[in-house]
Design a protein around this nucleic acid. Structure first.
Length: 574
RNA sequence: GGCCCCGUAGCUCAGAGGAUAGAGCGACCGCCUCCUAAGCGGUAGGUCGAUGGUUCGACUCCAUCCGGGGCCGCCA
């Protein structure tokens, strides 16, 4: 139940009735008619703009429509008052029973409260993380992992059929570099001193890989020319890195449905097939690009390449898919990969990239648009930088010195729950400050704590109520303003889910939970002054049952929200 | 030079085209005999970067400009 959608339906039925009676002209569109919570609670529980958006097409004064509409709306038993205000708003107040019903429904529906038919089984593929398999995941990947995972859960909650996917970049030159780096560690394991040349990966994490290579191959690969060991070492090292990455993701609670290998596209005709699709549409040609303006590379010279006419689908320049030497560019397997997703029947695609990949958005959009003839929308979400701090001091990282902070460092330091919540306290495209000290602080300054604390408070009173052997009725008795404030916030949950899902913005869930927790803490505190508002009424099981329904509903919503974010709701604070 | 993101209170940030633009921090003033004060209430603080445009209505959409960041031929 989404009370805002329900009342909107009522508004529209009323409008239809007005049309049927000739009070409004026929043929009007209700698309712009909205029923929303007002900014100022003094304006009521919800407001509709119907009269204003219909005034012009209906050729009537907004207030005339509003007066007529408002008068009829009150015949809806849920609507207590409907008043015309301002330029033509209709401010609606609902009867108290509605809010009691919301509380009962939240408790009754439990984990499914807020589920939406929005997705209606639409198949969505969400690709995230997709880090090169050349080492452990670092902080930047962590944000992408958390964001993608929360978005996936959010869409599932909203009724979408979601596939979580990771694209393994195991087809390019970087995995050869990985192989050479691992080979040096293999030599080291054999008692030789490794030569980590400039450009190789120096990290310690390859030491065990070298040792494992020794276990598998003994000394047989020593003193062989690179051509004879490269493939085997590369595959071995890549598998080891993917195993490492899977473990890293597991510590965060991220589990992919599907890993897709770039390598599987090469030599199998799959790239060729995807390019053939573009060729079929007349979007492949041979040509020479202009040099990039502004920053001209020293060694630039015009070369003829095979190009994708991405400008036909909104890109700024056409993009090379094959180099002048006949090898595919990195973009070619990307096209093939996305063609594969389309061929697998996904209705919508989402890619989560780091902000440094912003330059690829237009070309990927163009590729998907071309390959699906505009049928499959692709939304590319960029996650901005994470700046690390400790007690307000910037945390210096140096890749060269190998002192970069890994995902595992972060999770071990503050825990997966805190990591996930904090990463979602900013919009994906806003930079994020992550202070190791502050995120674990137990105070209201810390949103993770604040929301968890609200949940723990509810569980605490529920444990107390257990001892009273009361009848756990879903029927709340709401009396105080603060109680209605909380119930009304709960009523917004289903609507919030739809907005967040539609915009692909899981951070909205985190912000909402903070607001709900705030309303709840306020109510709790009111119980300090006014014992009638306490959830546990000593020696009175009936009164307690009636008062404890509301916090129970709060806990349901907080738990559902936290689960979407991938955070475990806690039973008590420790 | 081009493209993308950002610009909202002193600071960090929310804000489906709606009414008098919000929250937290910081500052100031209050609230524990009472389910966790790990909390709550109040006060102060704003030309929503600028100028035009669309609209009944613009922080929101469009254009131009200013400021900050990122990316920019065959690299991955």
């Amino acid at each position: 139940m989404n009370i805002f959608a329900d009342i909107r339906t009522s508004v529209i039925e009323t409008l239809d009735a007005l049309v049927a009676e000739g009070r409004l002209p026929s043929g009007l569109s209700w698309g712009a008619v909205a029923v929303e919570p007002p900014r100022d609670p003094a304006h009521g529980d919800m407001a509709t703009n119907a009269a204003m958006v219909l005034a012009k097409p209906a050729d009537k004064a907004p207030r005339d429509i509003a007066v007529e509409l408002a008068e009829r709306l009150t015949s809806d038993p849920r609507i207590a008052t409907a008043e015309v205000a301002g330029p033509g708003f209709i401010n609606i107040r609902l009867v108290p029973e509605v809010w009691h019903d919301v509380v009962a429904e939240a408790i009754d529906a439990g984990r499914s409260f807020g589920h939406s038919g929005l997705g209606a089984g639409v198949k969505v593929n969400i690709e995230y993380v997709s880090a090169n398999p050349t080492g452990p995941l670092h902080v930047g990947h962590t944000r992408g992992a958390v964001f993608g995972d929360a978005l996936a859960a959010l869409l599932e909650f909203a009724g979408y059929d979601v596939t979580r996917e990771y694209y393994i970049n195991d087809g390019g030159a970087q995995v050869d570099v990985l192989a050479r780096s691992a080979y040096e560690r293999y030599r080291e394991a054999n008692g030789l001193s490794p030569e980590i040349a400039e450009g190789l990966y120096p990290g310690d994490y390859l030491v065990p890989v070298g040792e494992a290579l020794k276990v598998k191959y003994g000394d047989r690969l020593l003193n062989l020319p690179e051509g004879e060991w490269l493939t085997e070492v590369r595959d071995f090292a890549t598998d080891a890195m993917m195993e490492l990455i899977r473990e890293d993701l597991a510590t965060l609670g991220v589990k992919m449905d599907h890993f897709f290998s770039e390598k599987s596209l090469y030599g199998t005709g799959r790239i060729e097939a995807a390019i053939a699709e573009l060729k079929k549409r007349g979007l492949i040609y041979k040509g020479t690009l202009e040099p990039p303006k502004g920053k001209v590379p020293e060694d630039w010279e015009p070369r003829e390449q095979t190009l994708f006419k991405s400008t036909e689908h909104g890109d700024d320049v056409d993009r090379p898919i094959m180099k002048s030497d006949g090898a595919w560019t990195y973009f070619a397997p990307d096209i093939a990969y996305h063609w594969d997703k389309i061929a697998r029947g996904f209705d919508e695609l989402i890619d989560v990239f780091g902000a440094d990949h912003g330059g690829y958005v237009k070309r990927m959009n163009a590729a998907v648009s071309a390959l699906s003839d505009g049928r499959v929308p692709v939304d590319i979400k960029l996650t901005q930088l994470v700046k690390l701090y400790k007690n307000g001091e910037p945390f210096k990282m140096s890749k060269r010195a190998g002192t970069f902070i890994t995902l595992r460092d972060v999770v071990e330091e503050v825990g997966a729950d805190v990591t996930r919540f904090v990463m979602l306290t900013r919009k994906n495209d806003a930079p994020l400050d992550f202070d190791f000290a502050k995120v674990t602080e137990q105070s209201k300054d810390n949103p993770v704590f604040y929301v968890q604390y609200a949940h723990a408070r509810v569980r605490s009173v529920m444990r107390r109520a257990e001892t009273m052997h009361l009848d756990w009725s879903d029927n709340a008795r709401l009396e105080d303003e603060a109680e209605f404030t909380v119930a009304k916030k709960i009523a917004e949950w289903p609507r919030l889910i739809e907005i967040a899902a539609r915009n692909h913005e899981p951070h909205r869930v985190a912000f909402y939970l903070y607001e709900l927790a705030s309303d709840f803490h306020a109510l709790w505190n009111k119980g300090n002054d006014n014992s009638a508002l306490r959830f546990v009424q000593e020696g009175n099981p009936q009164a307690t049952a009636a008062k404890i329904a509301l916090p129970r509903a709060v806990a349901v919503v907080i738990a559902n929200g936290l689960r979407i974010l991938g955070v475990t709701p806690v039973e008590e604070m420790r």
